[in-house]
Amino acid sequence: MKSKTDFPNINQKKAEGMSPDGVPFRVLVVDDSMFVTKQITQILNSEGFEVVATACDGGEGVEKYKELYPNLDLVTMDITMPKMDGVTALEKIIEFDADAKVIMISALGKQDLVKKSLLLGAKNYIVKPLDRKKVLERLLMALK
C-alpha cells in the first residue's frame, strides 16, 4: 500500500499572493469598470491573494480603505474615475495612512500623472492592458 509520502509533490511553487505563513495578502480594488475589476480579481485570486473589497470611484475607495484599515495589504487604484479620480483618492489614503501600499492603474501612460502619483506616495504604476505577469510583478514588488 502506498502512503501519501510515496508521491512526490509536483506542485511545490508557493502561491505568491500569500505571506510566508500562508495568510493571503488582502487587496482593495478601486476601478469604475466592471470588466477591469473582474480581470484584476481573477489574476489576484489565481495567485492566492484575497480581494476583500471593491470600489467604483475614488470616494468609495477612500471610505473602504478607512473601514478595512489596518487589515489591508494593498490597493489597486484606477486613475480616471467618476466623482473622485484615483490621484485624489491616493492623496487622501496617504494622508490617512502614510504607509499605505497603493498601485496606480491607468490606460493613459501620461508622464505627469505617473510622476504626481509616485511623488504622492504610490508604490508603483501599471499601464493597461493588464497582463498577469506585469500585475503580479508590480504588486509583489510593492509588498517587499
Binding site: M34, F35, V36, L108, G109, K128
Partner: peptide, 15 residues
C-alpha cells in the same frame, strides 16, 4: 459586462 468590456477596449486604444 459586455458593454463595459467593449468600452474598456475603446478606452485603452484611445488612451
Amino acid at each position: 459586462l459586455v458593454k463595459e468590456t467593449i468600452m474598456e477596449l475603446a478606452n485603452m486604444i484611445t488612451a
